[in-house]
Structures are given as structure tokens and as C-alpha cells.
């Protein structure tokens, strides 16, 4: 099976236990709500190719266990992530209060340049809301995060969250703010096509050999 894509981004899904991280990932990949599985232990892994501003991007997504003590284990996976979904549950202030810690971890362990989108999940449970949209959007602004309220149940804004995060990374690559070739950028080229755009001579030589992987 051949897969072609222009870029590969490493993504993380982080946030407290029970905020719906795995459900967001499942909704994104399978387009369906899944609430009948065991909770995540350690790390799970998923991938999907999406199309963003005429580029196809393969997202390699690491879904982590949320319980505090698992951080000593899951932190090892942060290294070299290009993007992250930082998830809290709009019906639980506690999960919102924990955001600062998650953020510090992500920026310290993944990369200073990691692009993070804050996701207020369980948007469908508006009646039980404990965190207002306004409050969270202020937090996002202060911490230079993108922000969306999502629902893994209905699918609202789920795809958008991943796409927006990927789009921002692409923009940063194009503006030169992010260098995919830097070690630990969390970004890889999918094939030679893009390099060709950026440095025609070098890539032409490479594109002769077709990559079979």
C-alpha cells in the first residue's frame, strides 16, 4: 500500500484523565463516537492523512494517558512533537485548572516552537458547563494557543482542531519560522515534491529514485 503525502507531523493529545482525548482521536480518525472502550494506559497511536492548503499532511498522533502519575512515563513521548491538542473538559473546572502544568510540560519537553491548540471538549454538555468560552479564550490568548470548543460525541470542531493546528504549522514552515530539517522539529518530508519547490536542483536529483515506502 503506497501512501503519498507532502509532510508528516508528529502530534500529541494531552490533558487530564477523562477529558475525552481518545474519543477525540477516534472521532477524528474513524468519524464516529466511541465510548465503549477501556481507558488509555501509557500511549496509543493513530495516524491520518489530511489535506491542508493544497498539501497533504500525514498526522502521526500520540494519545496519552491522562492520570497525573503517568506523566513520568508519557513525558518520554513528547520529544519532537510539532503540534499538540491540549484537552480539557468544559464541565470540569479541575481539568481546566491543570492546563498550565500540561502547557509547561509540552513546551519544555516537546519543543519551544510546538504549535498547540486548546480544546474545550464535551461541548455537547453545555448544561453542565463549568468553564465559560470567554474565560478559556482569554487563557488561550495569554498563552498563545489556538482555541476551539469541541465535541467528540457529535464530531463538532474535531476535524477542525487537527486541521487548524496543522495549518498553522504549515504556515510557519512557509514563513521560515519553522525549519523542518532541524532535529526534533517533529516534521518530516513525505516525498521529494516539496523540497523540489524549495531547492529545485537538489530535489531533482533525489526525485529520480522513487520512494517505495
Amino acid at each position: 500500500m503506497s501512501e503519498t503525502y507532502d509532510f508528516l507531523f508528529k502530534f500529541l493529545v494531552i490533558g487530564n484523565a477523562g477529558t475525552g482525548k481518545s474519543c477525540l482521536l477516534h472521532q477524528f480518525i474513524e468519524k464516529r463516537f466511541k465510548d465503549d472502550s477501556n481507558h488509555t494506559i501509557g500511549v496509543e497511536f493513530g495516524s491520518k492523512i489530511i489535506s491542508v492548503v493544497n498539501k497533504s499532511v500525514k498526522l502521526q498522533i500520540w494519545d496519552t494517558a491522562g492520570q497525573e502519575r503517568f506523566r513520568s512515563v508519557t513525558r518520554s513521548y513528547y520529544r519532537g512533537a510539532a503540534g499538540a491538542l491540549l484537552v480539557y473538559d468544559i464541565t470540569s473546572r479541575e481539568t481546566y485548572n491543570a492546563l498550565t502544568n500540561w502547557l509547561t510540560d509540552a513546551r519544555m519537553l516537546a519543543s519551544q516552537n510546538i504549535v498547540i491548540i486548546l480544546c474545550g471538549n464535551k461541548k455537547d454538555l453545555d448544561a453542565d458547563r463549568e468553564v465559560t468560552f470567554l474565560e478559556a479564550s482569554r487563557f488561550a490568548q495569554e498563552n498563545e494557543l489556538m482555541f476551539l470548543e469541541t465535541s467528540a460525541l457529535t464530531g463538532e470542531n474535531v476535524e477542525e482542531a487537527f486541521v487548524q493546528c496543522a495549518r498553522k504549522i504549515l504556515n510557519k514552515i512557509e514563513s521560515g519560522e519553522l525549519d523542518p530539517e532541524r532535529m526534533g522539529s517533529g516534521i518530516q518530508y513525505g516525498d521529494a515534491a516539496l523540497r523540489q519547490l524549495r531547492s529545485p536542483r537538489r530535489a531533482q536529483a533525489e526525485s529520480v529514485q522513487e520512494c517505495g515506502c
Binding site: A17, D35, N38
Partner: peptide
């Protein structure tokens, strides 16, 4: 509370 949160996520199968 923490334990209760995992009850419906333990062997739903």
C-alpha cells in the same frame, strides 16, 4: 471521584 471516573471505562466489553 477518580475511581468513579474509570468505572464505565473498565471492561465495557
Amino acid at each position: 471521584e477518580v475511581i468513579r471516573a474509570d468505572m464505565h471505562r473498565t471492561f465495557p466489553d
